[in-house]
Each structure stands twice: as structure tokens, then as C-alpha cells.
């Protein structure tokens, strides 16, 4: 499943996309520790897979939550680097 967490507002589109089929195969879930804002939380989804989702209390603030990691001079993002199965994408 492709899960898109985020929003669209007057300033743009801010989505983090998680491919849960890839995420479910990852045992380490290193993205959880890698994100300095604690955006990723482990869950069992509706189909019984152990995956991560974006913290529901932070999902409407993604533009601001991710701001510190976003300067173009220090790619790649910590969450993307930590995600060994390549399940994560940012839309902005």
C-alpha cells in the first residue's frame, strides 16, 4: 500500500509517502530513531502488517516539522538515508 501522509495548502503540497509493502519487510525501522522530530511511529496496520506511520499529532505540521532537515546543502534527509528498503519519499 502507498500511504500518503500530509496536506495541501495555499503554499504547496507537503506529503511523506510510505510504501508499506517495503516498510513491512524492514525489521530495524531505523527511520524512527533517525528522525529528530519523532515523526515516525510503529503501528500494526488494518491488514496486520507492522509498519510505520506519521504521528497523527504532527501530520498537519509537516512543512515545519521537516524544516530543519530540509536545507539543500545537506542532503539526503536523515529519514531517507535510514530507510534501507527505500520505502520513504518526500513530495517537497
Amino acid at each position: 500500500m502507498i500511504a500518503n501522509y500530509g496536506y495541501m495548502d495555499g503554499s504547496g503540497e507537503y506529503y511523506i509517502t510510505i510504501d508499506t509493502d517495503k516498510c513491512a519487510e524492514c525489521e530495524g525501522k531505523m527511520c524512527i530513531a533517525a528522525c529528530p522530530k519523532g515523526l515516525f511511529v510503529p503501528i500494526e496496520d488494518d491488514y496486520g502488517e507492522d509498519v510505520v506511520e506519521i504521528d497523527s499529532g504532527k501530520v498537519k505540521e509537516l512543512k515545519y516539522q521537516c524544516m530543519d532537515c530540509k536545507p539543500t546543502e545537506k542532503p539526503p534527509l536523515p529519514c531517507i538515508s535510514a530507510c534501507t528498503p527505500g520505502a520513504l519519499k518526500h513530495s517537497w
Binding site: 502507498i2 500518503n4 496536506y7
Partner: peptide, 18 residues
């Protein structure tokens, strides 16, 4: 929401910010 032939979700997007 995208679903397969059994109604299982394959892709979703939600906007509840405004």
C-alpha cells in the same frame, strides 16, 4: 483511495488540514 479487486487499499491520500 485506490483499492484492488477485493477492496483492499493500495494507495491513499487524506487531506484533513482545512
Amino acid at each position: 483511495i485506490h483499492v484492488d479487486e477485493k477492496g483492499k487499499v493500495t494507495n491513499f491520500l487524506m487531506n484533513d488540514k482545512c
